[in-house]
Design a protein around this nucleic acid. Structure first.
Lengths: 237, 237
DNA sequence: TGTTAGATGTGATACATATCACACACGGTT
DNA sequence: AACCGTGTGTGATATGTATCACATCTAACA
C-alpha cells in the first residue's frame, strides 16, 4: 500500500504506469513533421514515447501557437483525455524527430488505473504536480512581461532539459529555433532574437548548433526575482 | 428565478468527495480580509467551503497578483497539495466574504481517496478537467493581448458565475472591482477601466453595484475568435 | 559549386500597454 | 454637513512589443 510519498524524480515517476504501457497494444512509427494527433480529434488512445521527440502545443484561431512541452523517450502523452466526458485531444502532438511510440487504448488504461492503487497513486501524483507546475509557469508568463517570460522559460528549460557541463554551464539539450522559444513564451521570433542576442552580448548564454547553453543562470533568476521554488515545480513540464 | 449556467456540472461534480468532506474534522469560521492560508505555508488540511467567498491567487515577487479563481459554497480548496512531496500551499486563500469552511486532514483524505474507487474516479476526473481548463485559459491570456485577455476572462466568468436574466443578458454574480479583473487577466486597473468603459459605450455590458452584466456575449466571443469549446472547459475554474 | 529553403539579424515604424498624476464619485462615518 | 477611505475615470507620457521589410547567414543538396 502506498503510504509515504516517494522522492519526486523524473526517472522514478510513473514507473508502474510506464510498465503497463510498455505491454501496449502495438508500436507505431512516427515521422518528423507529421502529427500524432491534433486538437479536436476524438481521443481513443494514449502514447508512451519510445524514441523521438514530440512537441505539444495549442493553436489560437488566428494561427498563433502556444507551446506547452517537448516530450521525449519515457514520457506519456494524451494523458489529459483520461476520465473526461469530452474525449477530444486538447493539444497538437507534432513530431519533431523520428521515433516510435507505444499505443494503448484509453478505455483499457482507465480500467487498469482504477483497479490498481499503485497506478492510481502515481497518476494522481502526476496530475497534482502537473497542475502545480502550470500555475507558477503561467503566472510568470503573464505577469513578468515578455522579457521575463523568456527568462522564466529559459530557467525552466534548464530544469527540464538541462545538462550540467564541467564548467558549471547548463546545456539545454534541445535544438530550439527562435520561433520555438517564441511559441513557448508568447512573443514573436524577432523579439526573442533581440533578447537572446542581448544575453549573448552579456555572456549570459551562448548558442551552438541551435542549442542554448546558459552560463549565468543566476543572472536570469535575479532578473525575474526567482523565488527558487523546487525543481520539480519550476519546469517547462 | 434565473437559471445558473454553472448548475450543470458543478453541482454534480465531486458529490462523493464532498460528502466525505462534510463529515469533516471540524468547522471553522472565516472572516473577510483574512487569509485561510498563504502560499508557502505547510499544508496539512483541505477545506470545503460551506458559505462565504474565497479568492485564490498567487503573488509575484514584485507585488503583482495573479488571480486564479473565486470559490464559494460547495467548492474544495487546497486540493493540489494532495499527493505531493512538497506539501506547501501554492496559492493564497483570501476571504472575500465571511463564512464557514469544513476542515479535513490531508492525510486522512489521501487515505480515503485511495481506498474508495468512486472517490478516486471523481478526483481524477476533476484533476483532468482542471488541467484542461487551465490550458485553454492561459493560452488565451498569453496569446490574445490584454484586451483579448479581458474579453476571455469575461466570457469565462459568464460560464463560471453567470446567471441568465429574462432578457438574455448574463449577470456575473460577483462583486468585482477593476483591480480584481486586472488581477485575473494580468493587466492594470487603469487598462481594465478603459476597456470596460469602451464596452459600456458600445452597450456590450453594464455595471451596477459592482456587478457586471453582459448584454452581448457574442460580441466578446467574436472579438477573441472563440471556438465555442465546451462550457465545462471554458471557465475561470 | 551554385542554388535554394529555412533560419537568423536588424532597422524603422506603428501600436499596445503601463505608468504617473490627479480629479472625481460614493457610502459610511463623526 | 464636512470628512474620510476606497474605488473609479482620464489625460499625458513613457515604455514595451509587434510588425514589416529586408539583408544575411547556413546547411543541404543537386
Amino acid at each position: 500500500m502506498m503510504t509515504a510519498l516517494q522522492a519526486f524524480e523524473e526517472k522514478k515517476r510513473f514507473v508502474h504506469l510506464k510498465e503497463l504501457l510498455r505491454s501496449a497494444n502495438h508500436i507505431q512509427k512516427i515521422k518528423k513533421g507529421t502529427f500524432l494527433f491534433q486538437e479536436g480529434m476524438v481521443a481513443n488512445e494514449l502514447y508512451l514515447i519510445l524514441s523521438g521527440k514530440i512537441q505539444m502545443s495549442k493553436m489560437s484561431q488566428d494561427g498563433k501557437e502556444m507551446c506547452f512541452r517537448i516530450c521525449s523517450a519515457g514520457e506519456i502523452i494524451g494523458e489529459l483525455t483520461l476520465f473526461t466526458n469530452d474525449p477530444k485531444y486538447l493539444l497538437n502532438a507534432k513530431v519533431m524527430e523520428d521515433g516510435e511510440v507505444a499505443v494503448i487504448k484509453k478505455d483499457y488504461l482507465e480500467e487498469q488505473l482504477l483497479l490498481n492503487p499503485t497506478l492510481t497513486f502515481e497518476y494522481m501524483q502526476w496530475l497534482s504536480n502537473h497542475a502545480r507546475r502550470t500555475q507558477t509557469k503561467f503566472r510568470d508568463l503573464i505577469l513578468l512581461g515578455k522579457k521575463g517570460a523568456l527568462y522564466s522559460t529559459l530557467i525552466r528549460m534548464c530544469n527540464s532539459y538541462g545538462i550540467r557541463l564541467k564548467d558549471g554551464s547548463i546545456l539545454i539539450d534541445l535544438p530550439l529555433k527562435n520561433q520555438d522559444l517564441a511559441n513557448f513564451c508568447g512573443t514573436t521570433r524577432e523579439s526573442v532574437n533581440r533578447m537572446l542576442n542581448a544575453l549573448k552580448q552579456e555572456g549570459i548564454l551562448s548558442i551552438h548548433k541551435g542549442k542554448i547553453t546558459i552560463h549565468d543562470l543566476d543572472y536570469l533568476k535575479r532578473e525575474v526575482q526567482c523565488e527558487n521554488c523546487p525543481v520539480e515545480i519550476c519546469r517547462i513540464e
